[in-house]
Amino acid sequence: MTLAPETTDLKVQLLLDGTGDWFTVCDLARLTPGRGVAALLPDGRQAAIFLDRSGRLYAIDNRDPFTGAAVLSRGLLGSAQGRPFVASPLLKQRFDLESGKCLDDEEVAVTAYEVRSAGVAA
């Protein structure tokens, strides 16, 4: 995907739960479509942020609940029935990117965050 010139200044922002504040993570241009990056949140938690091929952003907790390792941002993104998911790079369980629910074990879920791209004054 090529980003239009006017979008290159856009920043990725995440809604921190509880506070209602939008937390600025990085330039949108740092994200590769189909892949994720990890972000360190102010409270020490980690979020995995993904960009799909149509330019939509998703964010879930970075910690893989099956192994405890903070690696979900390094999984491959995919879609099934129109819903995006990430497959954990360790043991391959898939997580719905909109809800954080694990698609292979209904008892497991990770936090999903609201995320947006926005122009931010430098």
Partner: peptide, 21 residues
Amino acid sequence: GEQASLQDTNDHFLANLQKNG
């Protein structure tokens, strides 16, 4: 380019992922 988005994590970081990340 696009190849980067297709690789399993191991190929993407050109190293083998271990159990603790």
